[in-house]
């Protein structure tokens, strides 16, 4: 096994620890942005270390690519765990068995919409004026990108959307 693999693994572990500590210290509320900052600093450090110790350019590329893959996987996993209904159900059942009624109470539909609206507002994708909600410029850009990728993947708009 190349040493660059081991070095990348260690740097990734340090980046995850840094992300965790920065979160507990309340630095940068957005968890993805927080990891991008910590992960970039760790990635630059990795580049310097690999350039000093790697035997070939391909060693450096392998180490950096492996680190980038681990970072993407980590971001995917923690964003999924924070927003996935399945992950939330597993975490709830981790605390003990629940009846269908208890689960329904947690996932009361209007509450789910409300929490997402709050989140969209906190991330500056929508603004609320009285009872009226509109997209911000950032939200409009996101919806345009969504349409682009939906066309690209040749998909129809969400079929079960009641609106």
């Amino acid at each position: 096994m190349p040493a660059s693999l081991l070095i990348s693994g260690v740097v990734f572990f340090v980046a995850v620890l840094g992300h965790s500590i920065a979160g507990r210290l309340g630095m940068i509320q957005n968890s993805v942005a927080r990891f991008l900052v910590v992960g970039s600093v760790a990635g630059l450090t990795l580049l310097v270390v690999l350039c000093r110790h790697a035997v070939s350019a391909l060693d450096v590329m392998a180490g950096l690519t492996f680190y980038a893959f681990l970072c993407e996987l980590y971001i995917f996993l923690f964003t999924m765990v924070s927003s996935s209904i399945s992950a939330k159900t597993l975490r709830l059942l981790w605390q003990g068995p629940m009846s269908a009624e208890q689960l329904e109470a947690v996932y009361e539909g209007a509450g789910m919409v409300q929490r997402r609206l709050e989140r969209l507002q906190a991330t500056h994708l929508i603004r609320t004026e009285g009872k009226h909600r509109t997209l911000t410029a950032k939200g409009e850009r996101l919806v345009r990108w969504l349409r682009f990728f939906r066309d690209f993947f040749h998909r129809l708009p969400t079929s079960n959307c009641p609106i």
Partner: peptide
């Protein structure tokens, strides 16, 4: 789910219509 809500807001859907998205959640 969040993007469905964003699209509904973009279409200027009424507040009640956005609340109807709760059926998707269920």
């Amino acid at each position: 789910y969040s993007l469905s809500i964003l699209e509904a807001i973009e279409r200027n859907a009424a507040a009640s219509a956005i609340d109807n998205l709760s059926t998707i959640g269920e």
